[in-house]
Design a protein around this nucleic acid. Structure first.
Length: 111
DNA sequence: TACTTGACAAAAG
DNA sequence: CCTTTTGCCAAGT
């Protein structure tokens, strides 16, 4: 990948998330090598609106599978998109999160 | 250059 | 189980 900033790298990884799957901020940060920058991942999502192509930020949740960013999407839009991809959401959290979790460091960096 | 801010995470109470 | 505290790092001001 080209010389992308931290945000750019985050976008690249998030775009690799297959439909019907979800990942956590920490997983992405860990894949980028900066596990402590999990907050930056979410922070980058905030700026994902300017990214092109768009970033499926709705597939990114926190370590507990909680839709922390649903409020930023505006309403239940995040849940609707996830539901459309087959991801069940209940009480603002992903059902079978661990089963649907797509960890790039484990899926991509896999030998 | 220094301070503030977070769509987080893990630990402690 | 829920709330609070601490650590973390990059971007914006």
């Amino acid at each position: 990948m080209p010389d992308l900033n931290f945000y750019g790298k985050v976008y690249e990884v998030v775009r690799l998330i297959p439909p019907g799957r979800v990942t956590s901020y920490g997983a992405i940060a860990n894949y980028l090598g900066t596990r402590g920058s999990a907050r930056m991942v979410g922070y980058a999502m905030q700026a994902c609106g300017s990214a092109n192509p768009p970033v499926p930020a709705h597939r990114v949740v926190n370590s507990a599978g909680l839709l922390t960013g649903k409020f930023h999407f505006g309403g239940d839009r995040m849940e609707q998109m996830l539901a459309s991809e087959g991801v069940k959401v209940e009480n603002n959290k992903v059902v079978d999160f661990k089963n649907l979790l797509w960890d790039p460091a484990m899926e991509l960096d896999h030998d």
